[in-house]
């Protein structure tokens, strides 16, 4: 095992993330016509980590999707504003990236082809593909069809998209559910690097991730009807 330490994995070519403040206010979301969560307000500044917790079915994924603009909330709004200039509202597609439980890779493409495709979508330079692949230790599997990867490796490929996109705000759903402990630690290290660069993360997870100074946002079931 050649464990990389946190400081080594930052690499010399540090790209500073843009500093963006994420805020959601008075958010109400429903799933299949049923209200799931009401009156949710969250605010996170550059460097913050917010961990969403709560029992199964409480609406963590639904809430993350609403944050990421993949689901229209019934009420309330989600805003990304410039940390230096509070009046400047940032476009969501440039401010955030969402990584759900699905890894969004194509099984018939090789690992490398998947990374290249994402780089084109997120307009990322070649160096970022190489950095993401190296940091998540995916290099030995570059030519594997993504469909032949194990669950844990496929998850690492899915998480690599966050690093390729390099948007300031990361929304991640259950990032470490299928990762072994070394990969999990490595991923947490990447999140910490992102935070030090001025990025922020909102993570829904059941695992106790060792994120320094993370804020726990506990969701409770309140809607019974």
């Amino acid at each position: 095992m050649n464990q990389q330490t946190t400081t080594e994995s930052t690499r010399p070519s540090i790209e500073q993330a843009e500093r963006v403040i994420f805020s959601a206010s008075g958010l109400a979301v429903s799933r299949g016509g049923r209200p799931v969560l009401t009156n949710i307000s969250v605010r996170a500044e550059p460097g913050d980590a917010v961990v969403l917790r709560g029992p199964n079915g409480v609406g963590k994924t639904t809430l993350l999707r609403a944050f990421a603009g993949l689901l229209r909330p019934d009420h309330g709004e989600v805003l990304f504003t410039d940390a230096a200039d509070a009046g400047r509202i940032r476009d969501r597609s440039e401010a955030s990236v969402f990584c759900g439980v699905l890894n969004a890779h194509k099984a018939a493409l090789t690992l490398r082809e998947n990374l290249n495709f994402w780089a084109a979508l997120y307009n990322a330079p070649q160096t970022r593909i190489e950095a993401a692949s190296a940091q998540l230790k995916l290099d030995p599997y570059s030519d594997y069809p993504a469909g032949a990867l194990s669950t844990g490796l496929a998850r690492r490929l899915g998480l690599a998209r966050l690093m390729i996109a390099q948007r300031p705000v990361w929304f991640i759903d259950e990032p470490t559910a299928s990762l072994d402990s070394a990969s999990s630690e490595n991923f947490v290290a990447q999140v910490e690097v992102h935070r030090r660069r001025g990025g922020l993360v909102v993570i829904a997870t059941h695992d106790p991730l060792p994120l320094s100074g993370a804020r726990i946002f506990e969701l409770t079931t309140k809607v019974a009807a």
Binding site: S96, V101, A104, L121, Y122
Partner: peptide, 13 residues
């Protein structure tokens, strides 16, 4: 089914 629709929606202007 594989989640890439979210990526397409997220990245499209």
């Amino acid at each position: 089914e594989d989640g890439s629709l979210d990526v397409l929606v997220e990245t499209s202007d």
